[in-house]
Amino acid sequence: MQNSSIDVELLEQPMDCCFHPTEMLAAVGLIDGRVQAFRLTSGAAEEVVSKKAHKESCRAVRFTADGARLLTASTDRNMKAIDMASGKVTRWQRDAHEAPINCIHPLGSGVVASGDDDGCVKLWDGRQSAAIAEISEHTDFISDFAYQERDNCLVATSADATISVTDLRTRKVRARSEDDADDELLAVTVVKRGSKVVTGSQMGVLNLYSWGYFNDCSDRFPGHPNSVDALVAFDEDTVITGSHDGMVRLISILPNRMLGVVGEHGDYPVESLALSPGRTRLASTSHDAVLRLWDLSALHEEDGGEEEAAEEPVEDADPKADNGSHSDSEQKPQPKKRRRGEKGGRIAKKQSHKDASFFADLL
């Protein structure tokens, strides 16, 4: 049986979602540039922020580590910070990138990473108004970021079918995978206490990389019938995937197997996923104007605690999934994934603004 969900109606199609680091507070960025945030109380969601943050699509939203501010990024190439206490935009960085921004990721010590449609990654520090590093290892849009805490590294995936690993101490690229693949990488997370990197691909394959060996993946797990567009680590051995077929699945990593279906968005592809504090709720968004908040309490039940609960199937076998051990050549290619913000025909416009400090006062 699938988990129950709270369906929160939104003002427009959501592009991204995230959870507050310590509170039951979920935020979404919308295709019209608006940002909404909702507090979960007693099985309901109460809107606490509704703000027009950008002139164009708000592709990415992330809370700062202390949860005091919500960072946003847009196809208008601007990044902003919304104060959660007042709901006001407190700082911004205009023309932060030369191309539309696709994703952002807060890191330790006030550093924030951002990635754009041209494959450029920038690092920002709250104590400086300009980017502290610019990395141009990729040739197509940056699709996702993950943080490997043990070695203090940023992992980025790109539609050019490669991943890169940046050492945040030296602010230099430590490794990049081979670029002879033709399967776009669309999502990434880190599991096994930092020893494995899992990426979701256009062909529905999960690629596993061993930390320190990034030339090519060490393992491949086919099974999703469509592209894997979103990934979150539920625990060190289990990930949750969002796929183009509208299904949200629970996947065991090493051993690689489908455990079950968490929920679904019908015929709409799953674009983003986020876990709440304590991993009791999962947020998911699709092409409809709805934020779905799934109850994951069943994964924490049964004797044996969280580790054993993660091994229990959420429901019966997924009828859409392919659990067989097929070779990679049996995976059928799919159309290339359109970049965020191009759905509905909205294209980012080039603009020129005077630079302003974005991350000042964020520490």
Rank of each mutant, 00 (worst) to 15 (best):
D288I: 00
E178R: 11
A27C: 13
V248Q: 06
D245K: 11
V228T: 06
D180R: 09
S325R: 14
S329A: 15
Q13I: 14
S201I: 00
G204K: 07
A181M: 01
H224Y: 12
L362T: 12
T64E: 01
A27E: 10
G341E: 12
L40A: 08
V190M: 06
G204T: 03
G246M: 11
V191T: 06
A37T: 08
G43M: 08
T199C: 13
G67Q: 11
P313T: 09
G87H: 01
A60S: 14
S272T: 05
G200W: 03
S284R: 10
A321K: 01
E56P: 05
S74V: 01
V270R: 04
V239H: 05
M15W: 09
G33P: 07
S357Y: 09
E307F: 05
D303I: 13
A85R: 10
A283D: 03
V112F: 09
L362A: 06
T280P: 00
E134P: 07
A85T: 08
S297T: 14
A131R: 00
K122C: 15
D125Y: 13
I6G: 01
S210N: 12
R220D: 03
T285I: 15
Q148L: 13
N207Q: 10
F359I: 10
I163M: 08
L254R: 11
Q2F: 13
R220P: 01
M24P: 09
N152T: 08
A53I: 02
T157H: 00
D144L: 05
G305Q: 12
Q36N: 13
S286D: 06
A187P: 01
S86M: 03
W294N: 05
D219V: 00
L250Q: 14
K343L: 14
S158M: 07
V248F: 06
V228A: 01
E23W: 09
P335E: 14
K354T: 13
W211Y: 15
T199A: 09
Q128N: 11
V232D: 06
S352K: 11
G115A: 07
L25V: 12
T41A: 07
D182E: 09
E137Q: 10
K80L: 06
E56D: 09
P21G: 06
F358I: 10
E306Y: 00
I347P: 02
S4H: 09
I31H: 03
L275R: 06
L293K: 05
L291W: 04
A356E: 14
A298Y: 04
R292F: 11
S329M: 15
E308A: 06
D167H: 06
R62H: 14
S286T: 01
C217I: 00
R169L: 07
A317K: 11
G87Y: 00
S136D: 12
E301D: 01
A230D: 05
S109N: 15
S129H: 04
M203I: 12
S57N: 12
R62C: 14
T241L: 11
S158Q: 04
